[in-house]
Design a protein around this nucleic acid. Structure first.
Length: 273
DNA sequence: CAGCGCCCCTGCCCGC
DNA sequence: TGCGGGCAGGGGCGCT
């Protein structure tokens, strides 16, 4: 489900629901294991702490409390919705209770999502964060020179390269295909072969597309919902993803689909070189 | 050791 | 209408 625009959309929705300074009164969870073991003694450690902020880093949601950060990755099908009362049912796995009426429930049918809890000071060096690449929307860190430098020494395909969170964070399977199409670069190209000009076009394409997708509240293919219950409207702006055989919106030739690194990939043989 | 499959899950859609 | 196979927005891990 969630790439950078979807996680950003969830964070914005959560901020609208949770007032600053909300105090965690209890944490409830299902007996199911998510992708990884749930961190030990979470409720005991977090109970009574005030929520300072909700932030996004890469595809992670960060619930920053007084002393510790609750880290949540949505996997493929994770979502957060307010649900004031009632038992956890179905695929609901975690509930954060703040006040009588303020309770957020984490739902995740495939259970690829996960949680961790780290001390504030250890966030940058924790196992999830230490190797992450730059944020694509941070122009001071993610620019054509950076991309060219990293691409120069990388094998594989440019699409897999863009989806590698050590190179740049937040780009997943949908936006990788979309960005490569916008930039006119074939997904199968070796990163080594990219010119600086192509890196420039890729950086611009990635930044434009992610920004537009955030504006649209993300992309919903099947599951994605924001914390407010809205579907992502960027689905209607997709140019290649999920459009095999349909005409390219630039040249009208049929969009090709194939697998690259085990993932569905979409491109135009005429527009992308 | 970079890079590639496999696999963790459930649900849905498609073809037979 | 029922059912098996394939596939899904992520990414850690084990193997080569």
């Amino acid at each position: 489900m969630p790439e950078l625009p979807e996680v950003e959309t969830v964070c914005r929705g959560l901020r609208e629901i949770l007032p600053p300074g909300a105090q965690l009164s209890s944490l409830e969870r299902s007996s199911y294991k998510l992708r990884f073991r749930f961190p030990a003694r979470v409720e005991e450690r977090l109970k009574g702490q005030q929520l300072q902020s909700i932030q996004r880093r890469a595809k992670y949601i960060l619930f920053k409390f007084d002393r510790e950060v609750l880290i949540n990755h949505l996997g493929m099908t994770g979502s957060w919705r307010p649900k004031a009362t009632g038992e956890l049912t179905g695929h609901e796995h975690v509930a954060l209770q703040f006040s009588q009426q303020l309770r957020l429930v984490y739902n995740d049918p495939r259970r690829f999502g996960y949680f961790d809890l780290v001390a504030n000071k250890d966030l940058a060096t924790c196992r999830w964060f230490k190797a992450l690449g730059p944020e694509p929307l941070d122009a001071t860190q993610f620019d054509p020179d950076y991309l060219k430098r990293r691409a120069k020494s990388s094998g594989g395909s440019i699409k897999t390269f863009l989806m590698n969170q050590k190179i740049v964070v937040g780009v997943g399977n949908i936006y990788a295909s979309e960005s490569l199409h916008r930039a006119g670069v074939r997904p199968t190209r070796s990163p080594r072969s990219l010119t600086l000009k192509e890196c420039e076009r890729l950086v611009v394409a990635i930044q434009d597309i992610l920004q537009q997708a955030i504006q649209a509240g993300g992309t919903t293919i099947r599951d994605f919902v924001s914390a407010g219950g809205d579907l992502g409207a960027y689905s209607t702006s997709l140019t290649v993803y999920g459009r095999p055989g349909q005409p390219c919106l630039t040249c009208a030739k049929p969009i090709q689909s194939y697998r690259l690194g085990g993932r569905a990939t979409f491109s135009c043989a005429f527009c992308q070189h």
